[in-house]
Amino acid sequence: MRRVLLTFFSFISFFCFAQNEDDAVVEGELNATVINAQTSYPMVSVHVINLNKVVGTITDQEGKFKIQAAVNDTLYLSFLGFKSQKVRVTNDMFKFEGTEIALTELAYALEEVIVKPYLLTGYLEIDVKNLPINNAYQYSISGLQKSYEGGSKSPSAVTKVLGAILNPADLLRNLFGKKPKQMRKLRQMKEDEDIRNLLASKFDRETLTELLQLEKVDLEDILNNCNYSRSFINTANDLQILDAISSCYEEYKVLNRR
């Protein structure tokens, strides 16, 4: 009887140990392959970002990639012309080789485009007058170490300048004080070369919103209140937007310490 009980408890102990081992958080280098969902062919140069650890990489000629990750981390995959995808890391992805992630090609319905070229006469004085004028002026005030974009693209520029003079710390505290976790990722994003290369080629703010866990309207609100013109917000690539937000956040931290 004693031998039976000993065997039973040994089995229970082994089962619990195995279960705890399975439930343990696995962390390390994750290997996987990205393929085209329609053709099953490997995809080259797909950008892969770990949103939790804020590190990135790209797939090689065989569609394979390696990235530091832990169970329950979220990977964000993007490639031009394909639907971006978020993948939750699981234990099985570490245990078994050959993990494949499929991306689906986007179907764009092209609408009729009407091109309106500038009517050039060949006379410089006349043609220069017909070109559109960008009224994105900058206000520079003696004593302040920065200038403020204004003009028709930013009708409230004067108000922003006066607000920054009267109480600059409060203005930025309202922007960043409620988002400390998101803003702490800025430095990590700027230091990762793969993430910077990806952002330099994108203009849709999609990757930025995923990394910072902010809505697109939040990004625009931050830039508006940091005195960037509408022209800059609409035309800058995602890396320029990242650098602009980071610069504004560094200014906030300096003012907040004071």
Rank of each mutant, 00 (worst) to 15 (best):
K64S: 14
S147C: 05
I133G: 04
R88A: 11
T99P: 01
G98A: 13
L119H: 15
F79C: 06
V128P: 00
E149C: 09
E97L: 11
N72A: 15
K153T: 12
E105F: 03
S147F: 11
R88I: 15
L80N: 07
Q145A: 09
L120I: 11
Q85G: 05
L124G: 04
V89T: 01
L106M: 09
L75N: 00
E125N: 10
E112W: 05
A70C: 10
E111F: 06
F65N: 00
E62L: 15
G122N: 07
Q138G: 11
S142N: 08
T59E: 00
L75P: 03
T104Y: 08
G98P: 01
F82E: 03
A107G: 06
A70F: 05
R88D: 11
A136N: 13
V89M: 02
V87K: 04
Y148K: 01
N130A: 15
E112L: 04
G81C: 10
E62R: 12
S147Y: 07
Y108V: 14
K95G: 07
E111S: 12
S84I: 04
L75E: 02
K64W: 11
Y123H: 10
T57F: 02
E149A: 14
S84E: 14
Q61A: 14
G143W: 05
K153R: 08
G98R: 00
I67W: 01
T74K: 12
S78W: 04
V71G: 04
E100H: 09
V89W: 00
L131K: 08
Y108L: 08
I67Q: 03
T90G: 07
I114R: 06
V89G: 00
G81H: 04
Q145I: 10
K95C: 06
M93D: 00
Y123S: 10
Y148L: 07
T57H: 02
G63T: 03
A136P: 01
K146T: 11
F96N: 10
Y148V: 13
V113T: 15
E105R: 14
K153W: 15
D73W: 00
F82A: 04
D127L: 06
P117H: 03
Y118A: 14
F94C: 05
T90W: 03
K86I: 05
N135C: 04
F65R: 03
L80I: 07
D73C: 10
K64R: 15
F82V: 06
E97R: 14
A70D: 02
K116S: 08
K64E: 13
D127W: 11
S84F: 07
S140T: 14
D73H: 05
G150V: 02
V115S: 13
V87F: 06
L144E: 12
A109W: 11
A136D: 15
S152L: 13
Y118G: 08
E62P: 05
K66T: 09
D92M: 12
K153N: 14
I141N: 10
L144S: 06
L75R: 01
L103V: 03
L77A: 05
K129N: 09
I126H: 13
T121N: 12
L120Y: 14
S78G: 10
V115C: 00
T90Y: 01
S152R: 06
Y108N: 07
V113F: 02
E97C: 08
L103P: 02
A107H: 09
G63K: 00
T59A: 02
A70M: 11
Y118F: 13
V115D: 12
T90L: 12
I58W: 02
S142T: 10
P117V: 07
I141D: 07
D73L: 08
F82S: 05
S78R: 07
F82Q: 04
E112Q: 14
